[in-house]
Amino acid sequence: MTSALIGANVAVGPASSDGRRPRRVRRTTPHSTLTRGAGLGLGVAMIWFSLLVLIPLTAVIAAAGQGGWSGYVDVLRNDQTWAAVRLTVSQALLVTLVNVGVGSVIAWVLVRDNFWGKRLLDVIIDVPFALPTIVAGLVLLSLYGPNSPLGLHWAFTPNAVTLALAFVTLPFVVRTVQPVLEELDADVEEAAASLGASRLTILRRIIVPSLAPAIAAGAALSFARAISEYGSLVLLSGNRPFQTEVVSVRVLTFIENGNNQSAAALASIMLVVALVVIVALDLVQRRVARRG
């Protein structure tokens, strides 16, 4: 999983680090120059993508759409659901922000600094990915529950939601930024420094713009993961309506009541939220990258 992620990002790395990514993307779109091999690749990609993503997503939206617009309105008008949506989105945004900061710092430390235990830390970053989320919830409960050895009694509070989401989304930003940072030439920074740029200017004009696409990609992944999280929260948050109940638990409640339409409606609303945030992140990223 990790290697796949890194592989994908290494491929993206050079294109994005030169800061001209938008133009390159546009250049390939107008007319088809597909060779036979490329056509085959595109075909395989589209079939696979359709089976796994497009058809299921369409089915969800079709199921949700059966109630017409009123179905969506009814779902959102329920105070309990609305509270769950607010909690989930705000916590996901908060955790994504934290990840952008902390994740970038961790990636920086792992790439640029040498210290004892670096390799080990590098491997451990991925553990939240590998751990079944229910086990993550269990571990966090024993650490931050009533018997907390750390003295933090966060279980069954909104803090528990933040904690669980931060745990499961930690690797995203780190793993997207790390390979780009590795590819980033120190020569450019040295050149800038020799021309009299301060550390801050170098960070602002060279490093951040180069990393922006990677940070945005990581942030998008971590936001999307956070709004759909279920396993680690179900034990740790307590699922109390209006206080610690997240959207995925609401969806499950609808399903348990045989109300698949409302479940699908709420799920598609969250899809739209994810889409909006991902597009917004992309816009911000382009802006920042252009400034470089």
Partner: peptide, 18 residues
């Protein structure tokens, strides 16, 4: 104080000290 997802998860939360 908590409404865990299933009977077993509720037991886990309780035996864990809550």
């Amino acid at each position: 104080i908590a409404l865990p997802g299933s009977g077993r998860e509720a037991t886990t939360a309780f035996t864990d000290g809550s």
